Simulated scan of single mutants.
Amino acid sequence: MSMELEVVPAGLARVLEELPLVDHHVHGATSHDLSRTAFEELLGESDRPVPDWMTRFDSQLGFAVLRHCAPVLGLEPFCPPEEYLARRARIGAHEANRLLLGASGVGHFLVETGYRAEELLGPSGMAEASGAPADEVVRLESVAEQLAAAGCGAGEFGRRFAEALWERTGDARGLKTVAAYRCGLDFDPAPPSADEVAAAAGRWLEEGGRLRDPVLVRHLIWTGLERGLPLQFHIGYGDPDIDLKRSDPLLLRGLIELAEPTGVPLLLLHCYPFQRHAGYLAQAYPAVFFDVGLALTHVGARGSALLAESLEVAPFAKILYSSDAWGPAELHHLGALLWRRGMARVLGEFVLEEEWSVAQAVRVATMIGAENARRVYGLGG
């Protein structure tokens, strides 16, 4: 990757190009070939079909694919979508994954496996395709739903979920909750009683479906805190299944304060359009960390503006890198590339304006790109 940005001091550009990133929240790359329709559907967060009068290539993300992924597959930048997809089909998903994941320069993947995992490469598959280590992040709601599917009485749900979680996470690096999707973040932050959990479990097990009861979501979160692994929260931007106004991280303040004695790191993921709210929480509470993954890929050429806002009030030791890529390996590659380019622009301007030294810029880039995640998740290196 060449920065080709006049504002970037050479030493900073070199560090950003060569830095082995830690992608602390990512999903697997698609393990099978994709039709044009399937590929385009994965270029957005909407769960609705793409109208026949438009293409998702006409977006910041679509333009970024044609600009930055085409050369990785041996094509000229800005080639037509038809040419890009034809090339992708010729080389196949396995080779596309190898090229794009390898070109990302990610040095470690933390792979969340709780959503349609059968369609994606798991941690071992990601490691094989990329040549970089990959570990697992376990979704709390998935463990609970698997327990229910295997058969579990309401009265024993609380105890058996804890047992299942400990067993399921023996080699995991972290946990994740999608409470923002299931019930919103405006839930009672206190741990529920055993009687409340049993009653809520009885209602859920009788009705079936996805786990949405806020009492059970609270139980999962507090059991996760007892497990002691870093706990990730989906925040903000996502598909239409989420009520965006109920996914503001400020709604978690009560839980953050109650959970503080545990010392468990709380990772706020994505955060758009609440990145400034997340930054406030990160500077106010020692256990809170955040990233601007997912949105960074979708804003494309506007990534530097998003990154600049994330750097406003939060201590730099509290910000991490993630792509939240799910599906096409283009998203894994672009997450890393757009982060590198955006950070180069933002930090380069700080240096040229003589607000920061080059050494400070290099240190912050290294912290956010890799060192903070290695410390939080105990990755070493």
Rank of each mutant, 00 (worst) to 15 (best):
T113H: 00
G114I: 06
G114R: 04
E118I: 03
E119C: 01
E119L: 12
L120V: 09
L120N: 10
L120I: 11
P123M: 00
P123E: 01
S124R: 15
G125N: 00
A127T: 03
A127S: 15
E128A: 15
A129W: 02
A129Y: 06
S130F: 08
G131M: 07
G131Q: 04
G131C: 12
G131L: 03
P133Q: 04
P133Y: 05
A134R: 01
A134D: 00
A134H: 03
A134T: 05
D135K: 13
E136R: 15
E136D: 11
E136T: 13
V137T: 09
V137N: 01
V137D: 03
V138C: 02
R139W: 10
R139D: 11
R139E: 08
L140W: 13
L140Y: 13
L140T: 13
E141C: 08
A144D: 13
A144R: 06
E145T: 09
Q146L: 00
L147F: 02
A149E: 14
A149N: 14
A149Y: 11
A150F: 04
A150W: 02
G151L: 08
G151S: 09
G151I: 06
C152G: 06
C152A: 15
C152Y: 11
G153I: 05
G153C: 09
G153M: 04
A154W: 03
